[in-house]
């Protein structure tokens, strides 16, 4: 059983996921209400990418992680739990260290990652739309007996 995502405010990072070998998501601009960034970090290499919805590179993501990527890591930890994020990114915090967003970010930046391929942005966007499409699917009233294997729990990630 995977505990459900912790309820988190979505205004800053409306979408985050661990998929396609990356931590990826959509981050709202801190200054311009009309702008969003598509950000990602690759598992293992930590190659990072951040660009706007108009496909302009983020000014902050030249040499190292920009604030959008840092926010993305923070919200991913909220949503999935630090252990799972660290495991997915292969950014295991040193023995004895408590994994949290800060520690995971430090492990990755200490490896001096380089900027990655920006073509990921289109895929992330389409994944976000796939995610949203779940809102448009009709509820059904025919029973789904298999859902008995997924009881609700009061636990959260």
């Amino acid at each position: 059983m995977v505990p459900p995502a912790r309820a988190r405010k979505l205004a800053k990072v409306p979408f985050v996921e661990l998929a396609d070998g990356r931590l990826q998501g959509v981050v709202s601009s801190g200054s311009d209400i009309g702008r969003v960034y598509v950000s990602s970090v690759e598992a293992g290499t930590y190659a990072f990418s951040c660009s706007t919805n108009n496909n302009r590179p983020c000014g902050g993501a030249r040499g190292t992680f920009c604030n959008h990527i840092r926010a993305l890591i923070g919200e991913a930890v909220l949503q999935y739990g630090a252990g799972r994020v660290a495991r997915y990114l292969k950014a295991e915090v040193a023995e004895g260290g408590e994994p949290d967003a800060q520690a995971i970010t430090s492990v990755m930046t200490a490896a001096l990652p380089s900027p990655g391929d920006r073509s990921a942005a289109a895929q992330v966007f389409s994944r976000f739309l796939r995610h949203l499409s779940y809102l448009e699917l009709e509820p059904v009233t025919a029973p789904l007996p298999e859902m008995h294997w997924f009881p609700t729990t009061r636990a959260v990630a």
Binding site: L10, H131, Y134, P139, V156
Partner: peptide
């Protein structure tokens, strides 16, 4: 039994579950 189910984004939790299902039953 009367069932109602729906797919949902993973960030819809808590009271959001009722909101997804309510209109259908």
């Amino acid at each position: 039994r009367a069932s109602v189910s729906a797919p949902k984004p993973d960030t819809v939790v808590g009271a959001g579950l009722w909101q997804v299902l309510r209109p259908r039953m």
